[in-house]
């Protein structure tokens, strides 16, 4: 039986964002944009979708004089990511 892949994560940019956040405690919008080569507009839309699903938390604040957007993965996000990877594995190694 194939498990269903989480449609929220099964998209290139959203999966990239979640993977970056899995590997770090927190990451700035600028950092994610740089690493994913995404446009600012597209990235904001995808980040908002992940935030709405409760997979990540987004904090907007001023640090010094610069406005900063900081993203962190939530517990739900980690669970969803683990489920997604497990589902991927069941596709690649079907019994």
């Amino acid at each position: 039986m194939f498990k269903e892949l989480d449609p929220l994560l099964h998209s290139q940019l959203r999966l990239a964002v979640i993977s970056i956040l899995i590997g770090s405690e927190e990451a700035d919008f600028v950092f994610i944009k740089e690493k994913t080569n995404a446009t600012a507009g597209n990235l904001s839309v995808q980040i908002e979708k992940l935030r709405e699903a409760g997979y990540i938390s987004v904090e907007k604040a001023f640090r010094g004089k610069m406005p900063r957007t900081t993203c962190r993965i939530t517990k739900e996000g980690i669970q969803a990511f683990e489920k997604y990877v497990a589902a991927l594995n069941s596709y690649l190694k079907p019994k």
Partner: peptide, 19 residues
């Protein structure tokens, strides 16, 4: 972009170590 399973895993591997 919709990914296939192999591409998904490659992407995760690439991104997870960026930081």
């Amino acid at each position: 972009n919709v990914l296939n399973e192999k591409e998904s895993l490659d992407l995760i591997g690439q991104m997870i170590n960026t930081a």
